[in-house]
Design a protein around this nucleic acid. Structure first.
Lengths: 159, 159
DNA sequence: TTCAATGCAAATCTTTTGCAATGGG
DNA sequence: CCCATTGCAAAAGATTTGCATTGAA
């Protein structure tokens, strides 16, 4: 997996001919300092603790830049709000997702990542990030196979 | 990779205690007969050629059922509309996605799928589908590293 | 000084929901 | 018959955009 961290955000802006502004720097800093799986809303809240006048639009615009630059990556776990992860160096956690109850189990596989790198190289890509999600039914839900139709329906509805 | 196709949709409804209706059957049929990467809108258009009174809500609701049953799976390539793929038996195509220009290149890797199956088994999941996306910069965009800031900005904007 | 970036509010778009009417089992 | 399903229109969100103002370079 390619490394680009360590390159400050401001340097990256300069490379692309973009201006370094108080807002962009603040947003990038707060993003990098925060825990993973941050929603746009959460990021905006935090940024506003420092500078309450920063708008959602700016946060979205900056996040787009961070994503294009490979620093952030968007995830859509449920179908609702996107959440942004840091592109960390090396270690990635991937996800097993249950289609019935929505449970998410994390896992990591270095072996799979090796294969990914090889494929990317073959196609001429420089990879910054990846997303691997396995969808199915979890052990619990498989065990509930004997549920009545009514119960299944209720579970599916409030999902 | 687990197989469930061949099981008719109606049978699946019965198993879950759901009703088989004209609309559900029609939507499922059209979905299965269509090409991959169908948007909800496209599916709705096609279904309406047969029955113009079918509403978006019903299409969404049925697609959710198909997804939970493992027949369809949602993808979010750009951040816009979700697109639905058929869950085909065996063969999966995964995606390399360029963060700059949005280009999508497909690839397949049986080796990676083997590893996935093993992981799922270890965690007690029965997997119906998976999603693997590699994000980075494509060969073309890497070649354009010498572009001026202005050009980069324009490209990023109309993305 | 110049033009990109910002902040705000309005606009868009996708997906979900409430509810009366319909229709499967 | 009963209650799940449908269709419509309205609601709910999430993200984007137009535009006047601000601020980096």
């Amino acid at each position: 997996m390619e490394k680009t961290s360590g390159l400050p955000f401001q340097q990256l802006l300069k490379e692309r001919g973009l201006k370094s502004t108080r807002q962009r720097d603040e947003i990038a800093r707060v993003f990098m300092e925060s825990a993973d799986h941050l929603s746009v809303d959460e990021l905006c809240q935090r940024v506003r603790q420092k500078n309450p006048r920063i708008g959602y639009a700016t946060v979205y615009r900056t996040l787009k830049l961070l994503a294009q630059s490979g620093w952030a990556s968007a995830r859509q776990f449920g179908q609702r709000t996107a959440r942004f992860e840091h592109r960390t160096e090396g270690e990635h956690h991937d996800h097993l997702i249950c289609l019935i109850c929505g449970k998410i189990v994390e896992f990591a596989s270095g072996r799979i990542e090796e294969l990914q790198s090889r494929i990317a190289q073959k196609k001429g890509f420089r990879i910054f990030d990846h997303k691997l999600e396995l969808y199915g039914h979890c052990a619990d839900c498989l065990a509930k196979k004997e549920m009545t139709g009514k119960e299944v329906r209720e579970k599916a509805t409030n999902e």
